[in-house]
Amino acid sequence: MGLVAEFEIDCEALPLVEIARAASDATLRLDLQFNHGKRPLFLVTVTGGSQTAIEDALSDAYDVADWTVIGAAGDTRRYQARPALSFEAQLGDSLDDLAGLETLATADAIIERIEVVPDGWRQTGWFADRDAFTQFSSFWQRNAGFRLLRLTRDGESEPPGEGLTDRQHEALRIAYELGYFDIPRRASLEAVAAELGITASSVSERLRRAQTQLIQETVATTWPPLPD
């Protein structure tokens, strides 16, 4: 039986990480369109954040040649971007084993989801067996940083919230215990922030990411549909 893994790759040289750093209050999902020659196009779905900040970051990014808006729905926007560099050129100064990176492309695995975060990528993937997963994880452990968040067998059920980070779990728990989600609300965002020892803006971002993750796990199996 195959494996389903969720993990973080800590490598700031990965595509679009610069954009995630510039717009840390937004959620960026990346899909690679491999039917466009040697360099796959980037399909970037952005939820939240400032549209101006995102588009300025796309224009300034060293790894984006050009981009265009292809749809919007609510606070979700979708962009198509043409990469300015090949993966080898982009990662060559950061990875010692480029040949190993090419080998990963033929591994018995499917990367289902890529979320771009300020220090790398957060991914969910399906792996044919333990050997396929070990090949993938070992490469990134040798060449960058790798943190496993979740590993289950294909077909195993899991409770909602397994995709949350420890900090997101903590923020939700504290906010709930203080009454932030009560109606009427019994605690302010500032009170939750004081309990956690971080800023109110950081709490807001952490709660929003946690709520988005829970919605994706329980309500929405895909991103919001966008108009043609």
Score class of each variant (00 low, 15 high):
Gly120Ser: 11
Asp129Thr: 08
Gly163Tyr: 05
Asn35Thr: 08
Pro224Leu: 13
Gly92Tyr: 01
Gly161Ile: 04
Glu156Ile: 05
Ala61Phe: 00
Gly163Val: 03
Pro15Phe: 12
Leu151Val: 14
Ala84Gly: 07
Ser202Tyr: 07
Gln123Thr: 09
Leu149Met: 09
Arg122Asp: 05
Asp75Phe: 04
Tyr79Pro: 04
Ala20Leu: 11
Gly125Glu: 06
Cys11Ser: 14
Ala128Met: 09
Asp154Tyr: 11
Leu101Cys: 02
Ala99Gly: 00
Ile174Trp: 02
Thr218His: 00
Ala84Asn: 10
Thr52Tyr: 13
Asp25His: 13
Gln216Ser: 08
Gln216Ala: 09
Phe87Ala: 14
Glu190Gly: 13
Gly161Thr: 06
Ala220Met: 13
Glu102Met: 11
Ile183Trp: 03
Ser202Trp: 02
Asn143Cys: 06
Leu28Ala: 06
Arg82His: 04
Ser86Cys: 03
Trp126Val: 13
Pro225Asn: 09
Leu196Gly: 02
Pro224Ile: 08
Leu189Pro: 07
Gly2Ala: 15
Asn35Cys: 06
Glu88Ala: 12
Leu14Thr: 14
Arg82Asn: 03
Ala107Thr: 15
Asp56Leu: 11
Gln168Trp: 05
Leu98Ala: 06
Leu58Met: 04
Ile9Ser: 00
Asp93Asn: 12
Ala194Glu: 14
Ala23Thr: 15
Glu190Gln: 12
Gly92Trp: 05
Ala191His: 05
Ala81Ser: 05
Glu112Phe: 02
Glu12Tyr: 13
Ala57Glu: 04
Glu18Ser: 15
Glu190Ile: 08
Ala193Leu: 12
Pro159Phe: 05
Arg206Gln: 13
Asn35Tyr: 09
Leu189Val: 07
Phe181Met: 03
Ala99Gln: 02
Asp96Phe: 11
Ile110Ala: 10
Ala175Ile: 10
Val192Met: 04
Leu196His: 01
Arg77Asp: 07
Pro184Trp: 06
Arg122Tyr: 04
Arg39Cys: 10
Ile174Thr: 15
Pro160Tyr: 05
Glu112Ser: 15
Ile114Ser: 01
Leu226Met: 08
Gln80Ala: 10
Glu195Trp: 00
Gly161Tyr: 03
Thr76Tyr: 04
Gln135Ser: 05
Thr134Gln: 08
Arg150Ala: 15
Arg167Asn: 13
Gln141His: 06
Pro118Tyr: 11
Pro40Gly: 07
Gln211Phe: 01
Glu156Leu: 11
Leu98Gln: 10
Leu148Ile: 11
Arg78Ser: 12
Thr134Cys: 00
Ile183Met: 03
Asp228Val: 12
Arg173Trp: 03
Pro184Leu: 01
Pro224Ser: 08
Val69Ala: 15
